[in-house]
Amino acid sequence: MQFTAILKKQKISIHHPRKDQCDICSGFKVGTIDDEEYRNHIKRKDDARVAKRAAKESANSEKLVITMDLQSVLVCPKTNASSMYYKQKLQVHNFTIYELNKGDVHLYVWHEANGGVSSNEFTSCIADYISKISNSYKHVVLISDGCNYQNRNKVLASTLSDLAKTKSIVIEQLFLAKGHTMMEADSVHATLEQYFKPPINSPADYIARMRLARSKQPYNVNVIHYGFFLKYDDLNTNLSSLRPGKKRAIQLLLTFVK
């Protein structure tokens, strides 16, 4: 008690990291990562942040800039009863899109009985969002982490290519460096966590609290049914790989060896 009183008097608090620490930065501190790898990592981090800042500042009536991320798994039911920890729970997913232009937020929410967390689900959400944006936007920048099944795969890239042609717009993806993916979408998740205090008995409880989380500029909550998701990976994708040059080089090498 005395220790806590002194900390309060001196206005000192103990910082608890909200996110996992970067593996490379942590490895460098303990000596398992060499200087060159660490310097390249920091350069990629700084370059990505500069690009993100430039994209944010360039947002205007014709250029839409968004950040997007999946919130940590929400379990349902959520109670303070210790025995419930060992019970089977339903997983609820919240994919968040934050518009840097005006601060509008779009939440795509579903539970595991309606969909999983494959490229199909995230491509369906992003395609639905872009298809509904104002026709005044001629350029869209998507800022996210480099998670493969969410944002960095040929399924999403092919769909975005088709959308760009259909809407006659430019769609650009910006990936932040792994371990340093602080985005405005994360602030939405931090706000929501304050409203997700137990008890929560059903997915509907999560959804109701999401709609109450920001009174001045409410979140746009899209409750997703299984019929919403399309199997984009079964469609004929116009991109066979995100790195066609490397894949082509491998094919030529195999041909040469044969």
Results as ranks from 00 to 15, higher is better:
217 Q>N: 10
116 G>R: 00
56 K>H: 13
30 V>T: 14
188 V>P: 04
246 K>E: 15
168 S>T: 04
203 P>E: 09
148 N>W: 03
117 V>E: 05
258 K>M: 04
183 M>S: 07
244 P>D: 12
167 K>E: 08
10 Q>L: 12
104 D>I: 00
8 K>D: 15
50 V>A: 08
212 L>D: 06
69 D>L: 09
135 N>P: 02
257 V>G: 02
115 G>P: 01
168 S>R: 03
19 K>P: 04
1 M>L: 15
146 G>M: 10
14 I>F: 14
25 C>Q: 02
211 R>L: 08
201 N>D: 10
67 T>R: 03
90 L>H: 04
79 T>Q: 04
53 R>I: 13
138 K>V: 08
123 T>L: 01
174 L>K: 04
215 S>I: 08
150 Q>P: 09
44 R>T: 12
231 K>S: 06
9 K>H: 15
134 S>M: 01
13 S>N: 07
244 P>E: 13
42 I>Q: 10
237 T>I: 03
181 T>P: 05
149 Y>G: 04
143 I>W: 10
100 L>H: 15
155 V>D: 05
115 G>R: 01
219 Y>N: 03
71 Q>H: 07
4 T>P: 03
97 I>M: 10
152 R>I: 07
202 S>A: 14
63 K>F: 02
214 R>F: 06
241 S>E: 08
249 A>F: 12
91 Q>E: 12
184 E>F: 03
194 Q>N: 13
13 S>I: 12
54 A>C: 12
94 N>I: 00
223 V>D: 05
180 H>K: 08
52 K>T: 12
59 A>R: 05
186 D>C: 03
36 E>A: 11
231 K>C: 02
191 T>M: 10
58 S>T: 02
14 I>C: 15
194 Q>A: 10
190 A>H: 10
58 S>W: 03
228 F>K: 00
78 K>S: 14
153 N>F: 07
81 A>G: 07
139 H>F: 07
176 L>S: 10
96 T>R: 00
4 T>M: 12
246 K>F: 13
57 E>A: 08
46 D>R: 07
94 N>S: 04
147 C>I: 14
4 T>D: 13
67 T>K: 03
12 I>T: 12
214 R>V: 06
71 Q>W: 00
171 I>Y: 04
108 Y>N: 01
22 C>W: 05
161 S>D: 06
254 L>A: 03
99 E>V: 11
62 E>P: 00
85 Y>K: 14
61 S>C: 01
33 I>A: 13
112 E>Q: 03
55 A>L: 13
253 L>V: 04
188 V>F: 06
194 Q>D: 15
21 Q>T: 13
207 I>S: 04
232 Y>C: 01
197 K>G: 15
249 A>L: 14
147 C>M: 13
64 L>M: 05
63 K>Q: 06
162 D>V: 04
119 S>C: 02
82 S>I: 05
143 I>N: 10
87 K>Y: 15
48 A>H: 08
42 I>E: 13
150 Q>T: 07
83 S>K: 08
233 D>Y: 01
201 N>H: 12
174 L>Y: 06
122 F>K: 04
42 I>Y: 01
196 F>T: 09
182 M>N: 11
166 T>R: 08
41 H>W: 11
252 L>I: 09
162 D>S: 07
18 R>Q: 14
238 N>S: 09
208 A>K: 08
1 M>H: 13
92 V>A: 10
90 L>Y: 02
24 I>W: 10
178 K>H: 11
25 C>V: 03
71 Q>C: 08
83 S>Y: 12
5 A>N: 11
